[in-house]
Amino acid sequence: MTGKTHRQDFKAYAADYGQRYGILIALVLVCVALSVANEFFLTQRNIINVLRQASINGILAIGMTFVILTRGIDLSVGSVVALAGVVSASFATTSATAGIAGAPYGFYIAISIGILVGMAAGWINGILVAYFNVPAFVTTLGMLSAARGLTLLYTGGRPVPSLTPEYRNVGTGDVFGIPMPIILFAVVFIAAFLVLSSTRFGRHVYAAGGNPHAARVSGINVKRVRMMVYVISGALAGLAGMILAARTGSALPQAGIAYELDAIAAVVIGGTSLSGGVGQVTGTLIGALLISVVNNGLDLMGVESYYQQVIKGMLIVAAVMLDQARHKHA
């Protein structure tokens, strides 16, 4: 919590309340409307579908939340999804041509490689943003282009097919009937929630984003915090890339295009302020779910996909207007 909520200003309190619960109320309303409009919406299978479809974007959005909390932005996650996907898949393929020498390697090696690729990309972003003061928008825009180029170079533009069953399990397996992507999404969410709410690093993220100067004065290593959030975002993009590859059956070099936009949308809809320091991963979780519920509901009702884009656009703008209203009153 940031302290702003303790102000004795009713308007501010109302606006804050509206922002924090408004999005949850919106999600509930949309779900109620869809379950009335469509008999399949509330079936167990469909709920699993919605959660599974939300998981990749949700994982990216959680990483994005850390970055945006420090007043940054990570435009590179879509490309890092593809890069980490193809590199890790090349360690887990039985194809003689697409794999690297000695492939397939064990599951844990391939997965570790994917996470490391994501972390490396994030680390480069973080170093440039935190220590060389390159604007985050520019740095990660550069990485968006460079990582996509590296992906195409690495694969020659071709998919990496024939992934080992253990690797595919990350996308298609389940535990007690719950698909693996949902479990991973839940684990990432809980970990991020705990880190942000009850660790020193979490408090530093809020401090570095809310008031960097004050944070620096109070002895927080703001540069290190700013670097770390990009490493987290990169690592989660790596994880998302592997889930995507495992789900689609091949690691595709053109995977993840424009995924950064949905991730940013989920964060913004979830009420995290682009001006830093304010927001929670619970909001991001709800934002990611809302996007998926809307897409799924419109598919179920046979509405053309173009409407989905329009509605998503309106959601984003509405969420930011809520955010503005809150800042004006606070």
């Binding site: 469509n38 399949f40 079936t43 299978r45 469909n46 579908n49 599974r52 479809q53 995507l244 789900r247 689609t248 091949s250 595709l252 053109q254 995977a255 897409n295 799924n296 598919d299 179920l300 046979g302 053309e304 996909s305």
Partner: peptide, 23 residues
Amino acid sequence: LEQQTANWSRAEAQTLMENWLTR
């Protein structure tokens, strides 16, 4: 029963088909 674009993309088609199978 359904006719929609998935923009040549495997991932988009997968999501569409999941939802269509539900319906």
